[in-house]
């Protein structure tokens, strides 16, 4: 099933696996910058994985909130003396508020109309950025963004390794928070809405309000990723708020599989590493990504992580069957 399965315990095995992966990444990848880029997009993809997998909402507007996070963090760092952590959190909060407003207007429609509304808002955000040239720098973006210590004088972000450690810590907390929400009473309501929103309404749940809250949380995650991106690059380029960013985050989520938060990490990792490798070989590398996307949707509807989980599950039940005389139902 292409879903957050019901009630994973919290924290579960993937929480530990995530911690190990995040610690190992800068050592196994060719560069620490690549590891930083990976964790930034893992959080961005997580916003789509959460909305699509847990709540059943396909948002093509997550790039807008990524962009608001990116530009928000850049503006805060350029115009105030706040530390990096405050800038990141404030930018993510701005994105969450924007997502709640977009959500308030979009959840009046369901299905394809909802998707079109999120797409329209993403377009609007991009042109708003171009129009507000004095604030956003227009097509040049915002450059020369400082990278102050995390809080006050603590946690100097002078080296790429320190930047990675900061971003990886945020990534870990974002994943843990998402897992916590998914296995909470609120998560159970969101799952119910995904399964059958008419019944959820009849049971007494205000479906629109819960969807708005979920979109705000999704916006928070996307905004967090955008702000992390600004810390990572030291600038906020226009492509962070382009509609193509929305598309990229959805593609990562689907490649990884929306059945578990881990899908976002796998999807983002696959995309970022493949892009890094392919772009040195062929300038038209996006064509290969498109081809892979088609192959995954056709042959691995649960995504890479979902398919891996399925294989592990089969292997386990195969072993259980070999041990016990009773057949075990799958």
């Amino acid at each position: 099933m292409n879903t957050f399965s019901a009630y994973r315990p919290f924290p579960d095995a993937t929480t530990g696996a995530l911690a190990i992966v995040l610690v190992a990444l800068p050592f196994v990848l060719p560069s620490v910058t690549l590891a930083s880029e990976l964790v930034v997009f893992a959080v961005g993809a997580l916003s789509c994985t959460f909305l699509l997998g847990l709540v059943g909402l396909l948002s093509f507007g997550q790039g807008l909130f990524f962009g608001i996070g990116a530009y928000g963090a850049a503006l805060i760092l350029l115009h105030s003396n706040s530390g990096s952590l405050v800038a990141v959190l404030a930018a993510a909060a701005m994105a969450a508020i924007a997502a709640a407003i977009v959500g308030f207007l979009s959840v009046r429609r369901r299905g394809i109309y909802f998707v079109m509304l999120t797409l329209a808002f993403a377009q609007m955000g991009y042109f708003a950025m171009l129009a507000l040239k004095n604030v956003t720098g227009g097509e040049n973006g915002l450059t020369g963004v400082p990278r102050p210590p995390i809080v006050a004088d603590l946690g100097v972000l002078a080296h790429p390794q320190a930047v990675y450690a900061f971003l990886a810590a945020i990534c870990f907390l974002a994943f843990v928070l998402t897992q916590r929400v998914a296995s909470s009473p609120l998560g159970s309501v969101l799952r119910a809405i995904r399964e059958n929103d008419i019944r959820a309404d009849a049971l007494g749940y205000d479906v629109r309000l819960f969807k708005i809250a979920a979109l705000a949380f999704g916006g928070f995650l996307a905004g967090l990723a955008g702000a992390m991106h600004t810390i990572f690059l030291g600038l906020a380029p226009p492509n962070t708020i382009e509609p193509e960013m929305s598309e990229r985050l959805v593609i990562m989520a689907i490649i990884g599989g929306t059945g578990s938060p881990m899908g976002a990490l796998i999807g983002a990792g696959f995309y970022v590493l493949l892009a890094d490798f392919l772009s040195t070989l062929w300038p038209r590398w996006l064509m290969i990504i498109a081809f892979l996307m088609i192959a995954i949707v056709l042959f691995l509807p649960n995504g890479l992580w979902g398919s891996a989980e399925l294989l592990i599950g089969r292997w386990k039940s195969h072993r259980a069957r070999a041990v016990s005389p009773e057949p075990v139902d799958g």
Partner: peptide, 25 residues
């Protein structure tokens, strides 16, 4: 809710009228 357990179907119904519980994350 076809994909959820029987107990979970009923639990969701019971939880629905406890507003604070439903928003607990």
């Amino acid at each position: 809710f076809h994909n959820l357990t029987v107990a979970e179907n009923i639990r969701l119904a019971v939880q629905a009228v406890r507003r604070a519980e439903s928003w607990t994350f």
